[in-house]
């Protein structure tokens, strides 16, 4: 369908532009704002990939929670609205070269991969992907272990955050 491709191309341009701006705008808070646009674009890409659940989760978790957290974090620093000076340091050319090489390697790998040219036309699975996902999350043959490990990971993140946050609080209180 042509419309899909048009939407994809527009979204891709928006996401890439936003992503470049995230690392190039001088103000930290503006970087956070461009990040939100990039994340929203990724949600659209998920919809195009017929994965509406992930699109919605992308918005809830990344825009609704992580973007808010990033803005909170930026506000915790003193330099939220100040320019951070030049965005490039003396290794920028080297970093660009490494990035380009990595990009070339990844592109080469993808092009040589069969799946890139022969997409499965009609995958023979239950059309209700969410049910499949829910089932495999608690299936010992599926993703049970990652599912439970994820909860431990989340717990560890919580404990770590509170530990660091408490220490910070003891140092200085200001609102």
């Amino acid at each position: 369908m042509i419309l899909d491709q048009v939407i994809f191309l527009i979204t891709a341009v928006v996401v890439l532009t936003a992503a470049i701006l995230v690392v190039s705008v001088p103000k930290m808070i503006h970087a956070a704002l461009w990040l939100i646009l990039a994340l929203a674009g990724i949600a659209v890409l998920f919809v195009l990939l017929q994965a509406p659940f992930f699109a919605v989760v992308q918005v809830i978790v990344y825009i609704g929670a992580i973007a808010v957290l990033v803005i909170f974090a930026v506000m915790l620093t003193r330099k939220a609205m100040q320019d951070d000076g030049p965005q490039l340091n003396r290794y920028s050319v080297l970093a660009a070269a490494v990035s380009l090489m990595l990009f070339a390697v990844l592109t080469g790998m993808l092009l040589s991969w069969d799946g890139a040219n022969n997409l499965p036309v009609n995958p023979a699975v239950n059309p209700d992907t969410i049910v499949n996902l829910g089932e495999s999350l608690t299936n010992p043959q599926g993703f049970l272990l990652p599912f439970e490990v994820a909860s431990i990971l989340l717990l560890a993140a919580l404990v770590g955050a509170i530990y660091i946050g408490r220490e910070h609080r003891a140092g200085k209180e200001e609102e």
Binding site: P52, F53, A55, V59, I60, G64, A67, V68
Partner: peptide, 16 residues
């Protein structure tokens, strides 16, 4: 088929 979560997701835009 993700209607309920969609409501929460759109609500996040208002927070922004």
């Amino acid at each position: 088929n993700v209607g309920a979560l969609y409501i929460i997701a759109v609500g996040a835009i208002g927070t922004l």
